[in-house]
């Protein structure tokens, strides 16, 4: 894994022109990503001033306010909702991705293009689409009514199941794309070996594929959890105000309550939760041993 050439043996000017591009990149990431996060951290300790934004201070009031039962409940609800959506998404996505990796290359390309398109679709559009699909006048209940399953069509949103459905939809393509590399590298001979030893396809799936991929599954759930934690539009379009998540409240505090210090404190907490989760997946190691070849 050594570099192309051994640079230490070649005498070079210290300020080489070659270092300009990485210096520019570091500067951009530093100024427009790290410094904003730093300022946000500072602001989270600032004192809020009604009418203006804030004044410099060092107080824990914003964090203390979070301990209020109301915000604790929001945090707990956000985490519970995101975990539920993540688990459901992975439960559907895992067998789906497994089947996909065993399908023909052209099916795979078709599905990947489609999933990438859905993944990149704005949350606004997904929220609008689902609210249409679940609406009274243009929704699926129309179909049920037409089939005689319902007496008359009804609106299924805003509601918690609608929100959960939307979040599963939102995180499904992401989940598939996270699982795809690991599953497509899974040695197909492992499943074939199990079948030669008498295991039916279903039994093979549960006694070989799932256990071999255990760590991948858990880290995918965590990544999907962090991903759904960022959902901002769906709780507002498909859920009711009690279903608003931390992401919604952060924006609400920042834009409509003009309370930047408190919004910053909540964002820092969200950041810590997310970093913790990402750190767990990194500690778990990258991939499962995908076959006997290693």
């Amino acid at each position: 894994m050594s570099a192309v050439e051994n640079h230490s043996s070649v005498p070079e000017r210290i300020f080489s022109a070659k270092l300009l591009p990485p210096a520019y990149a570091s500067l951009m990431l530093g100024v427009f990503f790290l410094i904003p996060l730093g300022i946000m951290l500072a602001v989270s300790f600032f004192h809020r001033v009604e009418g203006a934004f804030y004044e410099p201070a060092f107080e824990f009031a914003n964090y203390a306010r979070f301990l209020d039962a109301f915000f604790i409940k929001i945090l707990a609800f956000s985490i519970g909702l995101s975990i539920s959506a993540a688990v459901i998404a992975v439960m559907i996505a895992f067998p789906f991705t497994y089947s996909l990796t065993r399908a023909s290359r052209s099916t795979q390309v078709f599905a990947l293009v489609f999933l990438l398109a859905v993944l990149s679709l704005s949350e606004v559009i997904i929220g609008f689409s689902w609210s249409t699909l679940l609406s009274r006048t243009a929704g699926i209940s129309n179909l049920f009514a037409a089939l005689g399953l319902l007496e008359r069509s009804a609106a299924y949103y805003p509601s918690l199941p609608a929100l959960l459905l939307g979040l599963v939809y939102l995180s499904f393509p992401y989940t598939v794309l996270v699982l795809y590399p690991a599953l497509s590298r899974l040695d197909p001979e492992l499943s074939e070996a199990a079948q030669m030893m008498g295991a039916s396809p279903v039994r093979t799936f549960f006694t070989v594929v799932v256990p071999v991929m255990k760590r991948t599954i858990i880290s995918t759930i965590i990544l999907a959890f962090v991903f759904t934690l960022g959902a901002y539009i769906l709780p507002q379009t498909l859920g009711k105000p009690p279903h608003w998540t931390l992401s919604v409240h952060i924006t609400d505090q920042a834009i409509f309550e003009a309370n930047l210090p408190f919004a910053a404190a909540m964002a820092i907490l969200l950041l810590l939760v997310s970093l913790l989760m990402v750190a767990i997946t990194l500690l778990m190691g990258k991939d499962d041993a995908a076959g006997g070849k290693a």
């Binding site: 990503f33 946000m40 952060i250 997310s274």
Partner: peptide
């Protein structure tokens, strides 16, 4: 990797 609202607020 992070919820985008964090970057957005920053």
């Amino acid at each position: 990797m992070l919820p985008p609202v964090i970057t957005a607020l920053g």
